[in-house]
Design a protein around this nucleic acid. Structure first.
Lengths: 166, 166
DNA sequence: CTAAAACCTCAACCAAGCTTTAGGTAAAGA
DNA sequence: TCTTTACCTAAAGCTTGGTTGAGGTTTTAG
């Protein structure tokens, strides 16, 4: 008796995957060099993919929609089991992870929004004087030059923004 | 009598602007080549800036925080009056514009979130079968290959996402 | 007056995320 | 079989948003 993993090894050619996933062949080559997807070779040295590569590509695309870099996406994908084809639960876990990432991004954008909102009243967006722009007083100097708006408190400050400059 | 625009021409050197705006001198040169900011030259060919350059840089930075490209930022800045130094109202108008942009971005992210959310139930994120990934049925073929999630209706569909593939 | 600091231009380089090109092999169909 | 289509590798090129470096000039401080 053969193992399932051996029975249903590679099936899809690079062209088929490209068409079904709606990406260029060159993109698949590229993802492979970056370790995001994997392929096996047939006798003539042509790539053959397992079907779950399609879902990996879906995850890659979804991650990109969320503004996540390929390196981070690779890390996320690396949490999938290597010993077997990922199942529903594996993918569901990944979805939840993406969602958390997304929540953070959204929260960040909302903070930016509050800032801009607070700054409309005074028509500012100035440098030193406006906490939206340069809130050193709040952020202070953190080890690796922490940035703007990664600190929720700033949103409040923006409400009291008065400009002293052009 | 001299015009105000002549009386208070350039004042700040590139180094001063760099320090006050917290950007590198090279960045200012770069922005200038891209037409985002403007400078005048003194007798010794050194750049001199009008004070409002600081606010332009603030706008540039704010836009970048929102994920807007320099080209788009340039377009936004181009709506400012050239004949006079921009005033409070000009900048306020711009702030409102940014805010609208931001609202769109946030709405987009929320749609992505709903998609991921809807897809957790079935552990999908698959290609053809999942509307999160490939909602051709909704988007259809638009002129220039319209993409995923730019269509609000898709969010609803994601709720009924069942997978037929690995 | 002199030396250091600031500035100038132009060109090269970086990272991410791909695409394009060139030169050659494999597979598929009439 | 023959020809077209698909595929292979490696290297170079592209865009965005800058940074770095070389070689030279201007300003400023002592």
């Amino acid at each position: 008796m053969t193992l399932a993993s051996e029975r249903d090894e590679p099936r899809l050619s690079v062209g088929e995957v490209a068409k079904r996933a709606d990406v260029a062949v060159s993109t698949l080559h590229f993802y492979e060099t970056k370790g995001l997807i994997r392929s096996w070779r047939n006798a003539g040295n042509q790539r053959r993919y397992k079907k779950d590569v399609l879902r990996r590509i879906a995850v890659i695309k979804a991650g990109q929609k969320m503004g996540i870099s390929l390196i981070e996406i690779k890390e996320t994908l690396s949490t999938l089991p290597e010993s077997r084809t990922p199942n529903k639960d594996d993918w569901a876990r990944m979805s939840r992870f993406w969602q958390a990432q997304l929540d953070e991004k959204i929260a960040y954008m909302m903070r930016v929004r509050e800032m801009v909102d607070g700054c409309i009243g005074c028509g500012c967006l100035s440098m030193k004087s406006c906490p939206m722009y340069n809130p050193e007083d709040i952020v202070a100097k953190e080890a690796n030059g922490a940035v703007w708006l990664d600190h929720p408190e700033q949103a409040k400050v923006a409400k009291n923004c008065y400009d002293s400059q052009n």
